[in-house]
Amino acid sequence: MNERPIRILLVEDNAGDARLTREALKQIKVPVAVHVAVNGIQALDFLYRRGEYKESPRPDLVLLDLNLPKKDGREVLEDIKGHPSLRSIPVVVLSTSTSPTDINRSYELHANSYISKPMDLEGFLEVVQGIEKYWLTVVKYPQELNA
């Protein structure tokens, strides 16, 4: 594993959820750098390094909420997975929705995994820790554009 922190782009409009996720991610041994985008447009600006994000790094992992202002999470997902230079970035959908349609559609759009956010704090922390344990310590990321 590289020495530099694992870069996570968290796309989440709910400030409370964003803070909780950051807190939960801080508690692990693996160093992470979390960037937050609060809507779909901002997420894509970050990924395409547009405007104020000109210097932003390529994330190793994207945690994506589905229901977002300005541009929906489904559209963001479709954009990432349809773009050759972004496609290989793993996208974990993290949504309160448990609708089979949302789950199925997300996998069709090539979400790397779909996780439904528990409403209670304990469950929420458990899920975030489950993601980090798996995605940050077990899974291998594309290294190509890390420089």
Binding site: T98, N104, V127, G130
Partner: peptide
């Protein structure tokens, strides 16, 4: 350890595609 982590993540954390959705 790796196999168990797959088990934990995919079988209890993740929502898998619903059956019969297609």
């Amino acid at each position: 350890k790796v196999v168990r982590s797959i088990d934990t993540f995919w079988l209890s954390v993740v929502k898998l595609p619903p059956r019969g959705a297609l």
